[in-house]
């Protein structure tokens, strides 16, 4: 993959972006000490229940993931490169990549977005990149998607007329009621969210954001959220993957 060199190029080309990026802090910096400690401790992090199920799924069946890819340990660094544009020009996030594997290589039906098996497998694969720096490609075929995501991020939306950037850049660290506003990175997803009592995808979280500003909630895996996910990842380039995260 060409992720990291490409990110460096973009940063050089756009000094403004570089300056802004330097202020972006990892999501864990915005967690309470209790939640942060729990995120770091597999024996106390409920997200690991999904990881466990995902690792079992990885090995299950005749045409298992393992039969092509070998041990799941070989997935190290993969999640850090997604979303990415596939050879046919389609933007895929990690969930989309797994679903393609299911339908194209395993001749199985797709699990379906936000289904338990897909969340579990995504968590198990993402875990293998935990602590590694995000390194998504932002140039070439990815460029128009990054641009679409940036536009979405900067567009005021909904009845409350708010753009993502107004909270997650201009007011990061401030409080909305009892919630500390983060830089809005997706590095912890799929994450176990206490409000959900379950593991959920970044798109589930984005739907909650849209609801929060009373804007149209786009579908799981929609082009809008996929482009936004890539743009969020471009903002997080160089920052560590936290998945499976723990969020309030």
């Amino acid at each position: 993959m060409i992720g990291r060199p490409a990110a460096a190029l973009l940063a050089c080309a756009a000094l403004g972006t570089l300056a802004a990026a330097s202020e972006i802090r990892p999501s864990r910096d915005f967690l309470s000490p209790e939640l942060r400690a729990q995120q770091d401790d597999p024996s106390r992090h409920p997200g690991w229940l999904w990881v466990e199920e995902g690792e079992a799924l990885w090995r299950r069946g005749e045409a298992s993931c393992q039969s092509c890819h070998g041990d799941i340990a070989g997935m190290a660094g993969v999640a850090a490169r997604y979303p990415a544009v596939a050879a046919d020009g389609v933007l895929l996030n990690l969930e989309g990549r797994i679903e393609r594997c299911r339908t194209q290589h395993q001749a199985q039906r797709a699990f379906g977005y936000e289904s338990e098996p897909l969340l579990s497998l995504t968590a198990a694969v993402a875990l293998r990149s935990r602590g590694m720096p995000v390194s998504v490609a932002v140039d070439g075929p990815a460029a128009p998607f990054v641009e679409a995501g940036r536009r979405f991020y900067e567009t005021r939306q909904g009845q409350l007329n708010l753009a993502c950037t107004q909270c997650h850049d201009e007011n990061a660290g401030r409080r909305l009621r009892g919630d500390v506003i983060s830089n809005g990175l997706g590095t912890g997803y799929p994450a176990y969210r206490l409000e959900w009592n379950a593991l959920g995808s970044l798109h589930r979280r984005l739907r909650a954001c849209s609801l929060g500003v009373r804007a149209t909630q786009f579908d799981f895996g929609s082009p809008e959220y996929l482009a936004l996910e890539l743009y969020l990842a471009s903002r997080a380039n160089g920052l560590p993957i936290e998945a499976p995260g723990l969020r309030r």
Binding site: G158, Q159, A215, T216
Partner: peptide, 13 residues
């Protein structure tokens, strides 16, 4: 306003 959820469309807060 852009992308207003249908449940809130056309009415002020």
């Amino acid at each position: 306003l852009v992308n207003v959820d249908a449940r809130y469309s056309g009415r002020p807060v």
